[in-house]
Design a protein around this nucleic acid. Structure first.
Lengths: 187, 187
DNA sequence: AATGGCGCTTTACAAATGATAAGAAATCGC
DNA sequence: GCGATTTCTTATCATTTGTAAAGCGCCATT
């Protein structure tokens, strides 16, 4: 997925503003296992995943809890770092060799302050992420792990081939043992 | 809490832009039990709660699942309606007689398009809500209901006096029976 | 081909939670 | 003010989920 497509998917803005915004992104490669940012650091960049797979997790009593997956086109950011400018509570790890686009948060701030179309692009970006976060929140509260597992593999069938099951179990909020039981029940 | 305070809490913007934004809000009263918007309607307004208490819930198999509380200063909006302009999955109900500020979504859209300061106000509004949603999502995945109950009453002690326990139990993701056991364990 | 490591499943048991119902306390409506 | 309803707690039992450990299959290395 290329950068222009990613920017367009958020909000269509005039070509000149889009070019200005795009010009401040840099493309970089990341390799499987690499950690993009860590707990207790202030994430000062916004990334988009062009190719690859990533997950976000926190450490709880020495155990990793995966709470997010990112695919092609997904934004990678630490909310606490990007928005609140506080220490983040999350690590972000690449699960595959990946291609990323990066822009520094303070550069983005400057563009928001000077270009209304970019400001509205940033607004819609945050709004869409908010809608997704709300949907995940409600889904977790309302639906069982089994239903959410079915929905996950219906939406992203290849996640099973690309991510270890223990990360998927953690994402669903159950242990690998319980996920095995769910899978045995279904098939 | 007055409107200027609410707007300032999101982001400080020049006085003229703030006045312009504020001028499009209207103040209204709501009474306990009133439903502000319903599932399957497109929420075309953004509200702020000046005084009172509210909750958002969805119906699941005929049962209400509360997933959000709003206090003085909280924004009341249907994400699906406000952001995605799709049918919402939530009902929003006032738990007390309340005072609200309302602005219509399409009026707000017009202001975003014409005033860069208001556009950035809207961006920061969405970003802050996103940070809160992420925090709740992770909290829900990582922490037990007991810990989240302790944190809820530590942050909002009067919620116990203002909201029925069954709504709090639902919000925490457990049955009222389990919440009773948690409370018996603590005190 | 054998070996060891890793990821996933399965089993057995323990702990936590839900469902149901009953009872006490508070609240509401007339 | 008083009965009726609602709300919360408590108790009992069934179900689900977690924990720990064992087993299996796959893959890489030698």
């Amino acid at each position: 997925m290329d950068l222009m497509q990613i920017l367009d998917d958020v909000l269509l803005i005039p070509e000149s503003s889009k070019q200005l915004l795009a010009s401040h992104f840099e493309m970089l490669q990341g390799s499987k296992g690499q950690v993009l940012f860590r707990t207790q650091t202030i994430g000062r960049s916004l990334y988009f995943l062009s190719q690859g797979l990533a997950r976000a997790y926190t450490l709880l009593d020495g155990l990793e809890v995966t709470f997010w997956f990112g695919w092609e086109g997904s934004p990678l950011l630490s909310m606490k770092g990007y928005v609140a400018k506080e220490y983040s509570y999350e690590d972000l790890e690449l699960l595959e060799d990946s291609v990323l686009f990066r822009i520094h948060a303070d550069v983005l701030q400057g563009l928001f302050a000077s270009d209304i179309h970019i400001a509205n692009w940033g607004r819609v970006f945050a709004e869409k992420e908010l809608a997704k976060a709300e949907e995940r929140l409600i889904s977790r509260q309302v639906k069982t792990a089994e239903v959410r597992y079915r929905e996950l593999i219906a939406t992203y069938p290849d996640i099973l081939l690309r991510a270890p099951l223990r990360h998927i179990a953690s994402y669903l909020g159950v242990t690998p043992v319980t996920l095995s039981r769910i899978r045995a029940n279904i098939s």
